[in-house]
Design a binder for these strands. Structure first.
Length: 683
DNA sequence: GCAAAGTGTCATTAT
DNA sequence: CAATAATGACACTTT
C-alpha cells in the first residue's frame, strides 16, 4: 500500500487516472505504464502484471531488496512485497472477481479492493459502474484540472498547484459532501450511498475506525481464501506478523486515504463536471481514529488540485526527460524560491546532480506538520524494533544537530544528505503509515533513500550520476536519491517535527531519550561507524553479501577511502566474528565430544575391570578345584610299598597317549625346561 | 570485588 | 594471489 501511495503521490497514479478519465474508461492500460513509467512504480508491481522489471524501472527509488531501506515495508533480507499492503496481484484478482475489466493500479482501485475485501462487493461494484458512468462527464473536469498543467500552457506547471482553495469552497466541500452529488441513476445512487457512508465516517471517526479495522480483518480473511499464488504473494513472514497492529494501522490509514481519492474523485465526476478538481480538498477525507481526532481538519487541508498539479509536474518532468534524466526548469526553479521543497534543487546547479528518478519530492506538496505528527503518534513504539540500521540512520538524533543549510554551505561536509533525512519526520512515518498523500510524498518518500548520502557525496556531485541502472543490486537504487529534497523541514512552522521521526509527547521525551540511548548502546561498533559514515547498507548485508556483489558495490559507487576502508573492515570483522563464533562452537563441540569419549572410555574401563575381576574369580575357582582334585588324587595314590605319595615330591603328568604318570617334580621341572628350549629353537 | 565464561578483534596461518 | 576460514591470543564485557 505504501508503494501505491508513494507512486500515487509521485504523480503516476493521478496522471494515469486523468488520462483514463479523459478516455472515459476507468481502466488502466499497462502499455501506458510502460510508456510513462511512474518513477516510483515498483519492479514488483510490474512483475505482478507481467511487465518489464529491470530496464524501465531502474528509476524506482525503492530498493529492490530490503535491509536498510525496507522501512517496515520491505523485508530486510528479501525482496518480497509488503505483506501488510495488499499486493497488486491481490488487488487485480479482487477486482477481476467483480467481472469488471479493471486493473487496479490506482488508489481508487485499491479502495475498491478494500471495499471488496471488507465484504462490500456490491458497493465496490456499484462504484465501478458509477465511476464508469460518470467518467464520461467527469473526464472533462479531470482533463481541465490536470491536463492544463500537463500541457504546460502557463509555462509554470506549479500554477495550478499554487492556486489555493477558497475558504468558501472548502467549507462547502466539507459541509455538503453529498448534496453536490446529483442523482444520476442507480449507480449514482449507490455511489451516493457510499459517499454518505464515507462522510458519516467523518463525523463518527471511531465508528469508522472500527469499520476499518473490521474491514481489514475481513480483508485478511478474504485474502487468505484466494488462490495459492495469491497466498504466496500475500504470505506474511513471521516478522511481519508480529507487526499486525502496525500493519492494521497502516491499512487503516491507507484505506482512509484511498477512500478520499475515490470519494472526492467521484464526487467531482458526478456532481461537478463543470468544475475543476480544485474544489475538492483533503478536508473531505474521512480521517479516522487518531488522525481526525486530534487535528483540526481545516488546518490540514491539502488541496487535491495541489496533488494533481504536482503529479502533473512529475509527468512533465518525465516527458521533458525521456532519457530519464530529470532537468528542472530553471525559471520555475527560481520563480518561487520561497517554496521550501524546491530549495534543494535551487542549490543544484549542475544538471548531473539531478539523478533520474530523484527530486520527486520536490514536486510534492509540503507536508502538514500536524498531520505528520498526529500520524506518528499513532505509531507503536515497538516498530523501532523492526527498523533496520538504515532506518535508524535516518531517525537517530545524533545527526539532527546538523542543519541542512550547513550541508549545502559546506560541500565538503561528510555528513551527507542523509543528515537531512534524519531530520525529516521520515522514517517512522514513512515506514508505517502516512495519512495523507502529501505526507507521504513530502516526507516518507525522500527519506527512504536519502541514505544515498553515502559518502557525503555532496562534495562530488558529478559522481552522483554514475549509477549503473543495469545493476540488479539494490544499492543502485539507493544512490539514485541522494539529491532528494529535504528542505521542507526548514519550514518555520515545523521546526521540531522535522528533526524527529514523530513528535514525542511531553512525557515521552524521557522515553524517547532512553530509547535513543538504548538504540545507540545496542548498536555495535561497526554499526555505529557505518551510521556515522552513512553507509547505506546494514552490517549484516555487508558481511553476508557475496564477494562479487561487495566488490561491485565498492567499484560502482564513489565511496571515500574512509568508507571503503570501513566497509572492508566491517566485512572482515564481521566474517571473522562469525568465524570466531564457529571456531568456538567447534572447539566446544570438540571438547564436548572429548568429554563424551572420556565418559565412554571410562565406562568401558569399568566394564573391563569387572570382566577381569570375574575372570580372576573364575580362575581362582578353577585353581581351587584343580588343587582339590590334586589332593584327592594323591590321597588315593600308593607307592610300591603301600605308602601314600607325597604331593610335594611327585606330580601328575599326562602323556601323549592319554595315560597319566606319577613322576618326581624334579623331572617335571627339567622336562619343562627342555620343552621350552625346543620351542624356542622351533621358533 | 573476583573469577569464570562469553565475546569481539587482531594477527597469523591454512585452505 | 586474493578471499576466506581457522585459530591462538588478548582485551573487554557479562555472568
Amino acid at each position: 500500500m505504501k508503494h501505491l501511495k508513494r507512486w500515487w503521490s509521485a504523480g503516476g497514479g493521478l496522471l494515469h487516472l486523468t488520462v483514463l478519465l479523459s478516455l472515459g474508461v476507468l481502466r488502466v492500460d499497462l502499455d501506458l505504464y510502460l510508456l510513462l513509467p511512474p518513477p516510483t512504480l515498483l519492479r514488483d508491481e510490474l512483475l505482478l502484471l507481467g511487465g518489464p522489471a529491470s530496464s524501465a524501472y531502474a528509476l524506482s527509488p525503492l530498493p529492490a531488496s530490503g535491509g536498510w531501506g525496507r522501512g517496515g515495508q520491505l523485508h530486510p533480507k528479501g525482496r518480497e512485497l509488503d505483506p501488510a499492503a495488499p499486493p497488486e496481484g491481490q488487488l487485480l484478482r479482487k477486482v477481476r472477481a467483480l467481472g469488471v475489466p479493471f486493473i487496479p493500479r490506482t488508489r481508487v482501485d485499491a479502495w475498491l479492493v478494500h471495499s471488496v475485501a471488507a465484504g462490500d462487493a456490491d458497493e465496490a461494484h456499484g462504484l465501478l459502474g458509477a465511476a464508469a458512468a460518470s467518467s464520461a462527464g467527469g473526464a472533462g473536469a479531470s482533463v481541465d484540472g490536470g491536463g492544463q498543467a500537463v500541457q504546460g500552457g502557463s509555462g509554470d506547471p506549479r500554477a495550478a498547484r499554487s492556486r489555493p482553495l477558497g475558504a468558501g469552497e472548502e467549507e462547502k466541500a466539507l459541509a455538503e459532501p453529498t448534496a453536490q452529488v446529483p442523482d444520476t441513476g442507480g449507480c449514482a445512487s449507490e455511489e451516493n450511498e457510499v459517499l454518505r457512508e464515507k462522510h458519516e465516517g467523518v463525523d463518527h471517526s471511531s465508528q469508522h475506525e472500527e469499520n476499518e479495522e473490521r474491514a481489514s480483518a475481513q480483508k485478511e480473511n478474504s485474502f487468505q481464501q484466494n488462490n495459492e499464488d495469491e497466498n504466496k504473494i500475500a504470505e506474511k513472514p513471521d516478522w511481519e506478523a508480529e507487526k499486525s497492529t502496525e500493519s492494521r494501522n497502516e491499512r487503516h490509514l491507507n484505506g482512509t486515504d484511498i477512500s478520499f481519492s475515490l470519494e472526492d474523485l467521484l464526487q467531482l465526476l458526478s456532481s461537478q463536471p463543470e468544475n475543476s478538481l480544485e474544489g475538492i480538498s483533503l478536508g473531505d477525507i474521512p480521517f479516522s481514529g487518531s488522525i481526525s481526532d486530534g487535528m483540526n481538519s481545516s488546518a490540514h487541508h491539502v488541496t487535491f488540485s495541489q496533488a494533481i498539479s504536482q503529479d502533473v509536474n512529475l509527468h512533465e518532468a518525465i516527458l521533458l526527460c525521456p532519457n530519464n534524466t530529470f532537468i528542472r526548469d530553471p525559471v520555475a526553479k527560481t520563480s518561487q524560491p520561497q517554496e521550501p521543497f524546491l530549495q534543494f534543487n535551487s542549490h543544484t546547479t549542475n544538471p548531473e546532480q539531478s539523478l533520474p528518478g530523484t527530486n520527486l519530492t520536490g514536486f510534492l506538496p509540503p507536508v502538514d506538520n500536524h498531520t505528520r505528527n498526529l500520524t506518528s503518534q499513532d505509531l507503536d513504539l515497538s516498530i523501532f524494533d523492526e527498523i533496520d540500521l538504515m532506518s535508524l540512520l535516518a531517525t537517530e538524533n545524533d545527526l539532527d544537530q546538523i542543519d541542512i543549510s550547513q550541508l549545502f554551505d559546506e560541500p565538503d561536509s561528510e555528513s551527507g544528505l542523509s543528515l537531512d533525512s534524519s531530520r525529516n519526520s521520515t522514517s517512522i512515518t514513512k515506514f508505517n503509515s502516512s495519512p495523507s498523500i502529501c505526507d507521504e510524498g513530502a516526507t516518507g518518500y525522500s527519506s527512504d533513500y536519502d541514505l544515498g548520502a553515502v559518502g557525503g557525496y555532496y562534495q562530488e556531485p558529478s559522481k552522483l550520476c554514475h549509477v549503473d541502472h543495469d545493476s540488479g543490486f539494490h544499492g543502485d537504487l539507493t544512490f539514485q536519491h541522494v539529491t532528494h529534497n529535504h528542505t521542507y523541514h526548514l519550514k518555520p512552522s515545523a521546526p521540531q517535527s522535522t528533526s524527529e521521526p514523530f513528535s514525542w509527547p511531553g512525557k515521552s521525551q524521557k522515553i524517547r531519550s532512553r530509547y535513543l540511548e538504548d538504540t545507540d548502546r545496542n548498536l555495535s561498533r561497526d554499526e555505529r561507524h557505518a551510521k556515522a559514515l552513512h553507509i547505506p547498507f546494514s552490517v549484516d548485508e555487508i558481511v553476508r553479501m557475496p564477494v562479487d556483489s561487495f566488490n561491485s558495490m565498492l567499484s560502482r559507487y564513489y565511496l571515500t577511502d574512509l568508507q571503503v576502508s570501513l566497509l572492508r573492515d566491517i566485512r572482515r570483522r564481521g566474517k571473522n566474528k562469525v568465524a570466531a563464533q564457529n571456531c568456538r562452537k567447534r572447539k566446544l563441540d570438540i571438547i564436548l565430544n572429548l568429554e563424551y569419549d572420556v565418559c565412554n572410555l571410562q565406562a568401558k574401563k569399568e566394564m573391563l575391570k569387572r570382566e577381569r575381576a570375574q575372570c580372576n574369580k573364575a580362575i581362582n575357582i578353577m585353581k581351587q578345584k584343580l588343587h582339590d582334585l590334586y589332593r584327592d588324587i594323591f590321597s588315593r595314590l600308593r607307592d610300591d610299598q603301600g605308602r601314600p605319595v607325597n604331593p610335594n615330591l611327585y606330580a601328575l603328568q599326562c602323556s601323549h597317549d592319554g595315560s597319566i604318570l606319577i613322576i618326581p617334580k624334579e623331572l617335571v621341572a627339567s622336562g619343562h625346561k627342555k620343552e621350552t628350549q625346543k620351542g624356542k629353537r622351533k621358533r
